[in-house]
Write a protein that binds this DNA or RNA. Structure first.
Lengths: 110, 110
DNA sequence: TTATTTGATCGCAATAATACGATGAAGTGT
DNA sequence: ACACTTCATCGTATTATTGCGATCAAATAA
């Protein structure tokens, strides 16, 4: 992508795309679903759930954290990850707004 | 790899990730929003809306089409694109199911 | 203290995504 | 027939992502 043209997209388009990109890998979907399933904080045993090395899982966790979907809390020698409830609400609202945009579209076209 | 690790991702995890990946680029978000905004089929003037060359836009359109978000109909020498209402309903349901999964999670953790 | 555990980060290789000019295919108009 | 339009695809350069071993940092346990 040309750096000079990135600014041509609106802020919310860039935000949505960044968010979607974070969800655009099966490992990260699996991590989120695992965190949801155990309904509690899970630590590094996420690594055990995935067919990936510890370094790779750590990388995926960072990506999810950067986009605000999860948060991690240090607990002694391990780190407890969970879905970031606060941010998730905001993110969900962003996505739903986008969905409603699409819903309003294109009733009888083509 | 440890034997306890599941070597593959589930079908729905792969589907979700593929879908999210298709939304993971600002140009494709912009295309969808434009199609929604004009509330009718638009043809190759999508190119005029984006800071990208025709070949690149065509590429993005193909990705959106492959994942079922849009459809294109040939109209003479031009092609009319619009959101694929039918598929969009299915896709939205998939996403909402995923969202509900996350909603149920992690009430008071960390 | 030293050893161990947990997880983050670094460095690098392999792969995938992005962008664009050039070209091809198919329809339209002269 | 020819020129023109519209869009898809090809070839390819650039950049980003993915994955993993190695290593580092911090807390814990001996």
């Amino acid at each position: 992508m040309k750096a000079s043209k990135v600014s041509e997209y609106s802020k919310h388009q860039l935000e949505l795309a960044t968010l979607a990109k974070a969800l655009g890998h099966p490992a990260r979907i699996a991590i989120l679903e695992h965190l949801a399933r155990v309904n509690a904080c899970v630590c590094g045993d996420i690594v055990e759930e995935l067919p990936l090395a510890q370094a790779t899982v750590s990388q995926h966790l960072r990506e999810l954290k950067e986009v605000g979907l999860i948060k991690g809390t240090v607990e002694g020698t391990s780190v407890c990850y969970c879905i970031d409830e606060e941010n998730w609400k905001t993110i969900k609202e962003q996505l739903n707004t986008f969905f409603r945009e699409l819903d309003a579209a294109c009733q009888n076209c083509c």
